[in-house]
Amino acid sequence: MSNEMDRDTGHDYDGIKEFDNPLPGWWLLTFYATIIFAFLYVIHYESGSGNTLKKDLEIALAQIEAVKATAGPAPLESEDKLLEKAKDPQLLAVGAEHFQSKCASCHGNELQGLIGPNLTDNFWIHGKGTITDMVATVRTGIPEKGMPPWEGILKNEEVLAVASFIHSKLGSNPPNPKEPQGTKVE
C-alpha cells in the first residue's frame, strides 16, 4: 500500500466518511480495454470490413448446403428390398413410436384417418400405397393440404421406419374408419 492510501476526504454524511483512494489500476485498465475494444469492434463492423449478420447467415447456410450435397439423398432402393427391411420388428417398433408422436394427431391412433386420410384402406390420394410412395410422402409432406415435410426432423432410417409401420397396418380394418379418399388401388 502506498502512502496515498486511505487519505481522508474530510467528508462526513450522517457519520459516513470517505477515503480518497485512487482508482485501482487493474480496474482502470479493464475499463480502457473495453473502450478500445468497443471502438475497434464498431469500426470493424460499421466500416464494412466485418460481415453483416445477413452475410454471415448466407455463408453458414451455404456450408450446410455443401454438406448436404456431399451427403446426398439416401440411395433409392427397390421396393422389394424395402419390403424385406420392413419386416424388421425393431424397425416397426421405432416406426410405431414416431407415428404415435407425430402422425397420429392427424391420421388417428389406429391409422383410421382423422384430419388426414385413412391409411389402412386401399384408397390412395398420393401414390399407390407402396413403401416407396410412403417414404416419399413422409419426406416431402403435402404442404398445401397441411401435412408438413418430415425430412430434417426424421432421419432417413426413421422415415423408413414410419413407412414400414404404415405398410404393416394395411388392411387392418380399424374401428370408425374415415371414408375412402383418392383412387382405389387393387
Binding site: D6, D8, T9, H11, D14, G15, I16, K17, E18, F19, D20, N21, P22, L23, P24, W27, F31
Partner: peptide, 23 residues
C-alpha cells in the same frame, strides 16, 4: 448508505464513486 453504516468504516474511494457513477 447501509454498508458503511453497518460496518462503521469509511467508503473506500470517493474518486471511484464519481467515475463509476457517471460512467
Amino acid at each position: 448508505y447501509f454498508i458503511p453504516k453497518a460496518v462503521n468504516r469509511p467508503v473506500y474511494s470517493y474518486r471511484l464513486s464519481i467515475v463509476h457513477f457517471w460512467a
